[in-house]
Amino acid sequence: MTALAALAAFGLLALSGLAAAQTVGPNAEAEKCLSCHGDQSLGTIDVGGVQKTLFVDATVYGTSLHGLLDCTSCHLGFKPRRHVAAESANWLETAKLTACGNCHADQFAMYSGSFHGHLALGQTGSNAPLCADCHLAHNVVDVHSTAFRRSILDLCGRCHGGRSSTYLDSYHGKAALLGDNATAVCTDCHGAHRILPASDPASTISKQSIVQTCAKCHPGANRNFAGFLVHVDPRSPHSNFWVWLFYAFYITLIVCIFTFGGVHTALYIYRGFKDGLYNRRGH
């Protein structure tokens, strides 16, 4: 029976892939919800201190990977009517433990064991990201798509701004910003669901596994190679002394040479005009 359902779901997905995106809309069950939540003037609701909109864009949801699902697949316990407090009060607390994990058990298990998962699931009111903070709730897209890969820098940067700016100074970051979709982004080194601090041996960036992580893209990577600093701020002597030293030396050199060059050039032009040297016939 499950196999049959899976087959049917697969068939529907295949069909949705074949059909033009616009023709796939929310299903009849979701339409009921959208009769209210499709209204932009519906206002907002306080979720853990953050005002979230009650409006759901039917087109965005309908064309997302989850577009064929009922709203109640994730919004567990809600009924298609004016919601009572009992339905919504603790919904997020329940949903964060079950809504995604019901279908994506493997990913959810990895996430639960991760640094983010520990924080987000272990305590109420944590700022650590839940599934939907990275995958977006109503606009779930294919994580292998170019658009999603490109959005990862911003997704992580929302909380890890300093880290993402040092990443952008590395070749990976530069290439990513300028449109190279094959270059490493945050999740290629840190992992996605099972992100752990470097101090944890199980982390992809721990001393034990970093060489292997680099070798995914750089076959033959060795210990020294993995010692390359991805997150280094050349402008700060506290980030890495040697990188800062060479940076400071070059900035000083550039300022000196450009100043001398600028003054020399300006005076040469001044003297050229003053003595009428520019007015002479061509040589």
């Binding site: 070749y171 750089h218 020294n224 190679f225 010692g227 600093l229 040697w242 070059y250």
Partner: peptide, 24 residues
């Protein structure tokens, strides 16, 4: 050729190389 150079040099040389290359 970072792989070849890091057979001998520590990885931070790649960082320093980028700073020098870019500013030079």
């Amino acid at each position: 050729f970072p792989m070849t150079f890091t057979k001998v040099l520590p990885g931070v040389f790649i960082n320093v190389a980028l700073v020098i290359h870019s500013n030079e």
